[in-house]
């Protein structure tokens, strides 16, 4: 009896000890809290910054319609851009932006896909050792340099070739083509490399030629990735301001052809930004242009996500 009691007591004491040991915080757990805290803080700050930027641009951008009582339809469809006189038809810039973006993407995509196929399928070694660094270098060149080259080379060339001033959509397209080419190429290369090797082997073992394998199996299964690459390229082209501003001519009029001066949303923003007074219609109108840019970039993002999802469905169905 005596002994059992003793044992019980001892057990109690032990279990008490364990209770304390298993509940106390150690150095490791404290570090855990700190790490988590820092991480939450960072994400909190970023969310705050993004949210306030969205709110700021949106509130400023819609002031044109709420304070200055310009109708949204007139803003989107009007072709007369003279904010000083109260005319803010943004259609010329919208058309200009879309024109250079699509034209650059259409011209760049075949070159990018061709280069990517060369780098992954035809000559993977040279692709990795020579072309990859070259293309990565192209990505890193600042846009002002592209614009400068455009101004010094492309514009005079166009002037010589087709007459006029040389400034215009075609010059902007050319500069943007060079700028988006590396973006589309690198991303296409990634998506081609991600195609499982066994697809290629299966196709070759069936007697398909290399070209048939590339065109019908590899490109097919890389299509979602290539589309994403093109959209990223378009997003870059749509948002590019400086280089475009330097070569497009900055005339806020409806573009009648590819070789007369025009303007884009971004080029109009950079051109007009210094000349307006905060709170006035010309200033608010620029914010509205910025809002369109923001919405477009959201749209491009959503498109990329949509394609990624569809691609997954297709491969995993």
């Amino acid at each position: 009896m005596e002994q059992t009691n003793f044992q019980l007591k001892k057990q109690d004491a032990q279990s008490h000890e364990w209770d304390a040991r298993l509940h106390r915080a150690t150095r490791a757990t404290r570090k855990d809290w700190i790490g988590r805290g820092i991480s939450y803080l960072c994400i909190g700050v970023i969310i705050l910054v993004v949210a306030s930027m969205l709110w700021f641009i949106t509130s400023k951008g819609i002031a044109t319609f709420t304070q200055n009582h310009v109708s949204l339809w007139k803003f989107l469809s009007g072709t007369n851009w003279a904010p000083d006189q109260g005319n803010i038809g943004a259609l010329p810039m919208i058309v200009g932006s879309f024109a250079v973006t699509f034209a650059a993407a259409i011209v760049a995509t075949p070159f990018a896909v061709g280069t990517a196929i060369f780098m992954t399928e035809i000559s993977p070694n040279k692709g990795r050792k020579v072309l990859q660094p070259v293309i990565e270098l192209l990505v890193g060149i600042p846009s002002v340099v592209y614009g400068f080259i455009g101004l010094a080379v492309v514009v005079p060339f166009m002037r010589h070739l087709v007459g006029g001033s040389g400034f215009g959509i075609i010059s902007a397209t050319f500069v943007l083509f060079v700028m988006v080419l590396p973006t589309i190429t690198t991303m296409t290369v990634d998506s081609l490399r991600a195609v499982p090797r066994h697809y290629k082997e299966a196709s070759l073992a069936l007697g398909a030629t290399r070209w048939q394998t590339v065109s019908r199996v590899i490109l097919r299964s890389a299509t979602p990735g290539i589309l994403t690459a093109v959209i990223f390229g378009m997003a870059r082209a749509f948002g590019e301001a400086l280089a475009v501003q330097m070569v497009i001519g900055n005339a806020a009029i409806m573009p009648k052809n590819l070789i007369s001066p025009a303007s884009t949303l971004t080029s109009q923003l950079t051109t007009g930004i210094g000349d307006t007074i905060d709170g006035t219609l010309p200033n608010n109108a620029l914010w509205s242009l910025a809002l369109i840019l923001l919405l477009m970039s959201l749209f491009f993002n959503a498109l990329v996500r949509f394609i990624a999802k569809r691609g997954q469905l297709k491969n995993g169905r």
């Binding site: 697809y199 299966a202 196709s203 007697g207 199996v217 299964s221 491969n315």
Partner: peptide, 23 residues
């Protein structure tokens, strides 16, 4: 025929027709 089953991410029919069409 390979170690790992490696059908293309296509329909059953397309998997068979692929090489025939290629030829």
């Amino acid at each position: 025929v390979f170690q790992r089953p490696n059908p293309f991410a296509k329909s059953i029919r397309e998997n068979i027709v692929y090489a025939l069409k290629a030829n």
